[in-house]
């Protein structure tokens, strides 16, 4: 039986190559042309693809040949993808996603733009989006320090696969079994998803610190205090703190906040070097989820009255013309009450 990967971006290709070590893989891309050129060149997102991979742009074929599917598409395109796929899906399908973004419901989009406030019910994680738009219930999420570039070079890495269903964890681990990739199982899917999503905020901030040459002390300060903010936010959204202290939280933060190969880090870095957010977004090849995440996180923090000075300042710096220096100055004079208050 084949497994399917939806989305042939850099991480999607990494996942497909890992899976191909154990079974035949369909790698789905929306465009017929891309699928054709991938087939002839055996390349995807700059990576060589394994012999066991068949590129395809045929969604029904994908759903009918695979019980196990790995959607790895940007959060902005996720809803459209799952809606197109939904008619072919059944309740015994398994979906394990690797998307580090959130989706805002239509009702919420209005309230986000008018008042900037956002409630929990307006925000969907990707697993919640799958539940809402399809009959699939056996849903999992993979998150962890998985920089695509390193993984495509075959370097060792690890991640967490979270699902409420043991079957999803076991099937996922079986399919992804590899000597260069360790996969831990867990049940706290919301925590793992939010850890993966919210850490991108810190990656952008960390890129700014590098761009401004503020040094490693400042980075450590940003990450530590920022972690506390995202934990408080995640708690308000109903998640458990524990997942933030594992691979999907701290693990991923360490990797992305110190790596110039991270997209979100790059966004912050380039902003610090003087580019506007529009310029950066237009010239990036793949989506930096963190930008949208900052907007959503800041809307949530305001609705739930959660004190998030770092997120708020980043939001102002990116969307409201606050200069980065003024932002840093504000934060340095901000009176944080306690060092650790989330445990």
């Amino acid at each position: 039986m084949s497994v399917g990967v939806i989305g042939a971006g850099s991480f999607g290709t990494v996942v497909a190559n890992l899976l191909a070590e154990n079974q035949h893989v369909y790698l789905y891309t929306r465009s017929d042309d891309t699928a054709a050129s991938m087939t002839s060149s055996r390349m995807s997102a700059g990576q060589q693809i394994h012999d066991n991979i068949t590129p395809t742009s045929n969604l029904p074929l994908l759903a009918q040949s695979c019980h196990l599917l790995f959607p790895v598409v940007p959060s902005q395109g996720f809803k459209e993808m799952i809606r197109a796929l939904a008619p072919y899906l059944k309740p015994d399908n398994i979906m394990i996603h690797g998307t580090k973004g959130l989706s805002v419901k239509k009702k919420g989009e209005k309230s986000l733009s008018s008042q900037g406030l956002l409630q929990r019910e307006h925000v969907l994680t990707m697993s919640e989006l799958i539940r809402r738009e399809s009959v699939v219930v056996r849903i999992g999420c993979i998150a962890g320090p998985n920089l695509s570039k390193e993984m495509s070079q075959g370097l060792p890495a690890a991640a967490v696969l979270a699902s409420r269903f043991d079957e999803v964890i076991l099937e996922g681990q079986k399919a992804l079994k590899s000597h260069r990739f360790q996969l831990y199982g867990g049940h706290d899917i919301l925590g793992i998803e939010l850890a993966g999503v919210l850490k991108n905020i810190l990656a952008i901030g960390s890129g700014m610190v590098s761009g401004l040459d503020y040094g490693e002390n400042a980075r450590a300060l940003l990450i530590t205090k920022g972690l506390s903010e995202i934990i408080h936010l995640a708690k308000a959204l109903g998640a458990d703190v524990k997942s933030f202290l594992g691979l999907a939280g701290i693990g991923d933060i360490i990797a992305t906040c110190s790596s110039p190969t991270s997209r979100n880090f790059t966004v912050g870095y380039r902003m610090a070097k003087g580019e506007s957010i529009q310029q950066i977004m237009e010239t990036m090849e793949e989506t930096a989820e963190g930008v949208n995440t900052i907007r959503i996180a800041s809307g949530l923090a305001r609705y739930y009255n959660i004190n998030c000075p770092i997120i708020t300042t980043l939001h102002k710096g990116i969307f409201e013309d606050l200069s980065l220096e003024a932002g840093i100055n504000y934060l340095m004079n901000y009176r944080f009450s306690m060092d650790v208050d989330f445990l």
Partner: peptide, 26 residues
């Protein structure tokens, strides 16, 4: 019916890879 009004065969909920299978955790 699913969210889009399409019919669901609920037997699939008790299946794995197309076969009925008992799974208490599920």
């Amino acid at each position: 019916l699913d969210a889009h009004g399409a019919p669901i065969d609920i037997r699939d909920y008790f299946k794995s890879k197309g076969q009925l299978r008992e799974d208490q955790q599920r």
